[in-house]
Amino acid sequence: MVILAWTTVLVPLLLVASWAWQTCRSPERPGGPGDRAALVTGVAEAVALVALARALTRWEAVPDVLWFALVALVAAGVVGTVRRWPGLPGLDPARPGRRRAALVTELAVAAVLVAVTL
């Protein structure tokens, strides 16, 4: 049970940390989000992961600091998102239709996850 509790918090923590790292590192570096839609879905996915971790983790079995680490990583990712925002197009001009559909779908899934886990 304790192992499961750690797993349900550490897996989201690693995923959110990876996302925060991608958004916070220098925009000049290759990789990272290619358009603003990717920035928005990144935030939505991070919030959904935190909501899932909150719902599925037995928090009495893990240190509280892990929750605050999750929240701090989301905050860092949001800062990186704002920093990258001006330099990116709204939607990837090479495939705007697909990007728009992905944006709507991912936002809807994230919104549902957050709604049911609250």
Binding site: W59, D64, L70, A75, V79, V82, R83
Partner: peptide, 27 residues
């Protein structure tokens, strides 16, 4: 890559909102 003052304010405000909400909804 260096943020403008407006960007910095927006980023700081949003990060603060995330932190406050995170504290309010903590397990």
């Amino acid at each position: 890559g260096q943020p403008s003052r407006l960007q910095a304010v927006v980023a700081g405000a949003l990060a603060l909102v995330v932190l406050v909400v995170g504290v309010l909804v903590r397990p």
